[in-house]
């Protein structure tokens, strides 16, 4: 039975929900059964957020099972490292090299881990860890909020398959006036890990 399990991790407000909607839509385009889960509400206020997206011939649980994630997309460096129990030695992690300090770090009461430390933690649990300057790429194109589409561009180059399916869903879900920009962001993400 074929299945692909995705986990997206980030900070409330980074746009993981739009990105997970796009990823779910692509799964449907490709003919999979798709389920998706996330938590709304209180966590939106700058807290840790995670989205689960599952593609498969049949999918029961909307939640990815720990230890069985195929792809982890870390929208923020520290948040990427929070989910080792979901990974296995085959898992691929894409990390956006972007830092949002948690409150304890802002207050000088904790240190933000070094990139190398986070990289080691991820490599311990996953098979492959890829870093991209996603927020920077999105900002260069004019809007750092497009990070989700950049991440999906990167993911698409790993998954292979038709780019049309991805762009069709992006077109459906992104406001028309931002479509061209988002297409560029998708291409920038795709090229970032070629």
């Amino acid at each position: 039975m074929k299945k692909v399990d995705f986990l997206m991790a980030g900070v409330g407000g980074q746009g993981t929900i739009l990105a997970s909607n796009i990823l779910a839509g692509v799964g449907l385009e490709l003919g999979y059964e798709v389920k998706k889960a996330e938590v709304h509400g209180m966590a939106q206020r700058g807290g840790t957020v995670e989205s689960h997206v599952r593609w498969g011939d049949t999918v029961s649980s909307p939640l990815v099972e720990e230890g069985k994630t195929d792809y982890l997309l870390g929208f923020e460096m520290l948040e990427a490292a929070r989910w080792p129990t979901y990974l296995n030695k085959e898992s691929v992690v894409i990390v956006n090299r972007y830092r949002i300090a948690p409150p304890a770090v802002n207050l000088g009461k904790a240190d933000y881990p070094k990139e190398q430390q986070l990289d080691e933690m991820l490599k311990n649990s996953a098979g492959k860890v890829l870093w991209i300057n996603g927020t920077e790429l999105a900002a260069e194109l004019g809007n750092p909020a497009m990070i989700g589409v950049v991440m999906l561009g990167a993911l698409s180059s790993l998954l292979g398959g038709e780019e049309e399916a991805w762009l069709k869903v992006v077109e459906d879900l992104v406001p028309a006036k931002f479509l061209d920009l988002n297409k560029k962001a998708f291409a920038a993400g795709r090229d970032s890990i070629k």
């Binding site: 900070v11 409330g12 209180m42 966590a43 939106q44 206020r45 700058g46 807290g47 840790t48 520290l78 948040e79 490292a81 929070r82 989910w83 080792p84 129990t85 948690p102 409150p103 304890a104 770090v105 904790a110 240190d111 933000y112 881990p113 933690m121 311990n124 649990s125």
Partner: peptide, 16 residues
């Protein structure tokens, strides 16, 4: 690995 991750600074929701 979970124990190590639990040492990462937490990110509770806060006022905007």
């Amino acid at each position: 690995a979970a124990a190590k991750a639990s040492e990462l600074p937490v990110r509770p929701p806060m006022l905007c």
